[in-house]
Write a protein that binds this DNA or RNA. Structure first.
Lengths: 250, 250
DNA sequence: GAGTGCATCTCGCTC
DNA sequence: GAGCGAGGTGCACTC
């Protein structure tokens, strides 16, 4: 990893290092006392304060305050970053087209500027999604109940896509609505709409909310509309768990 | 702003600087070749690669790859960060309670480590939200149409909160559903549910979708259910625009 | 490119 | 602390 770092840079040095980082498609990090204005999908302004600024080679741009996970201001990937100097003050500008969005940052003082050329070919492997639940239940439908037979995944209706459609051991149409986290009333409403869509055709339609948990309100609503709940936790199995384990412990 | 920065630190130096930064409640930045494992709400693993790591004094923890706006791995505010060294290899650990979440990062090589004490008392001022639209339309109801009189904001129904409830010049109950961005079918569905809730009582109920735009599908659905659309852009007025303008140009 | 829905969403609000 | 809804959501996916 090639990198450059400069403490207490002059405005000119700040400008040069940022330009170099942009040209070389590096990650650029700044600690600066700055203020910012944004206009685009919304409009915002941020008064003077000390923050960290991160610019990525894909055009992503972030201003991080000393709290919160989210940046206080940002531009998405594919934005175009520029740096200017005017009356000895450095301005950072990031522009996005479609939708048109502008972020202008004034760097009153920069304490630390650095850029690093970063190589990274690894993608994150993640599990525990709703999709993982779907695959698992498709393979092991008896996790829902004995005799359940799934027939469709992502079945299209006018109210949206039904996660899993199938029949129970008595042949009754059964609709599964999956949630990877505790389900609230909105999940029950969604399930109810699917069930009502089908009830127009047939009378015996079961609706089952499948999730690791359910809120009290949601359970009440399930009872009210004679819908069901099945506790299922999303599976958390990583494909090549061994490999990373080795990375970690060897 | 007090800060420390070290190029190509030894594992011991990395450890010391991070610990110092944690103790002083600083923002900590690392450029490292690392791998990571996460387990909590989901589970994930990330193979070896060069990344930037940011730890904030509020416990926020991020691993940033060289692309995307979002961190590839993270922990939310109030997480607890620790650094350990084992066989000359540095491990970062961030733990969150409730829900229980663990992030473990192995730093194979660190290129740059720094921490900065950051002072920042400014909050972001932002406008252009749905709320701003609501306030504007409450003050200037004729923006909807001549003779419209709003009666309630955030009116509670069993299907949720109606943004603005009122009566038109003919005295007909009128429901406004506000969106600050282009509205899709889901917005129309929501509006339709409100209207149907009220139609049980009265027959003449108008539903108006108020947004800067509407998708084709949504417009079709509006026509189908005899709902209306009113083009209104969210207002973008900042309270103390002058102040930041001065910050910028003086 | 637009539209739809999930997310370790985050965040602020209310109860 | 739990639940609910908005967001400059971001992001992947489909059409």
């Amino acid at each position: 990893m090639k990198f450059i770092s400069k403490n207490n840079p002059t405005p000119q040095e700040t400008c040069e290092i940022i330009n170099e980082g942009l040209r070389k498609k590096a990650m650029i990090t700044l600690y600066s006392c700055c203020c910012a204005k944004y206009n685009g999908r919304a409009k915002s302004q941020l008064g003077l304060g000390e923050r960290m600024i991160l610019i990525k080679p894909d055009g992503s741009f972030m201003i991080h305050q000393n709290h919160k996970l989210d940046p206080v201001n940002w531009q998405p990937p594919k934005s175009h970053s520029k740096v200017k100097i005017k009356d000895d003050i450095v301005f950072l500008e990031s522009v996005r087209r479609s939708p048109e969005e502008h972020l202008l940052v004034k760097l009153n003082t920069t304490y630390l500027v650095s850029y690093c050329l970063v190589r990274d070919s690894e993608d994150l492997e993640v599990t525990g999604h709703e999709k993982d639940m779907g695959k698992m239940l498709w393979k092991h439908p008896n996790m829902i109940e004995n005799g359940f037979r799934p027939t469709n995944m992502e079945y299209a209706t006018e109210s949206g896509f039904i996660d899993i459609l199938g029949k129970d051991k008595n042949g009754f149409l059964t609709i599964l609505e999956l949630k990877s986290r505790k389900a609230g009333v909105s999940a029950v409403k969604q399930l109810l709409r699917y069930v009502n869509d089908f009830k127009e055709d047939k009378s015996h339609v079961r609706g089952i909310l499948v999730a690791p948990g359910v809120t009290d309100d949601a359970q009440e609503m399930l009872d009210k509309y004679e819908l069901e709940f099945k506790m299922v936790k999303p599976p958390k199995e990583l494909k090549i768990d061994k490999k990373v384990t080795l990375d970690f412990f060897l």
